[in-house]
């Protein structure tokens, strides 16, 4: 009868793992993934089609709505409220048709501090604004930059102050029927 140590010695002959089928599987998987993966990272910005609503009209009449509006004109950009909830702010465009993004963003941050619960913004571009400028302007209206001063809003469910990560995320186009 073999002693336990002798048995251990006897079983220690070299085992070689056959890696070839594993490599075959991996090559097939990599080929499949390379063919089907899209390396183009795309993102989207949502905007609803403006619709007339009557449900909140009475409620809204108690207090003048903000209706924060950004009008992009060929020579200048204006940030205003049709109900004069804050003083109108205007800045000339550094390049014709392209608004001063810093001015737009900084002004909207000030307005967000004044109206932290507001999420909607109306954009009224003139017809010659390019898609590139539209996307850049919408980005500056929707998102906070990491360098922006943080501010907090009380969560009504938990009662805890939470950092606001977005500026005015709901962008609505105000002149789909034509320039006014």
């Amino acid at each position: 009868m073999k002693s336990p140590s002798a048995r251990r010695k006897g079983g220690s002959h070299q085992i070689e793992l056959n890696l070839v089928p594993i490599i075959d599987t991996m090559v097939t998987l990599i080929a499949f993934l390379l063919f089907t993966t899209s390396f183009l990272a795309i993102a989207s910005i949502e905007s609803p089609f403006p619709q007339a609503s009557s449900s909140r009209t009475k409620e809204q009449l108690k207090e003048k709505p903000l209706q924060l509006t950004v009008s992009i004109r060929p020579a200048e950009t204006e940030i205003w409220s049709p109900f004069d909830r804050f003083p109108k702010k205007t800045a000339p465009n550094p390049i014709p048709g392209q608004p001063d993004i810093k001015f737009v963003h900084d002004t909207l941050i000030q307005i967000k501090h004044q109206f932290p619960a507001e999420t909607k913004i109306i954009i009224v571009p003139f017809s010659g604004v390019t898609y590139d400028t539209l996307i850049t302007t919408m980005d500056s209206m929707r998102m906070m930059d990491p360098t922006d001063p943080p501010f907090y809003l009380k969560n009504e469910k938990t009662g805890i102050d939470e950092a606001v990560k977005t500026l005015f995320p709901e962008v609505i186009f105000g002149n789909l029927l034509g320039d006014t």
């Binding site: 990272a41 795309i42 989207s44 910005i45 089609f49």
Partner: peptide
Amino acid sequence: KLFRFIAMKKDA
């Protein structure tokens, strides 16, 4: 009723 404007991600 809903539009999505497609663009490329900046960090891509």
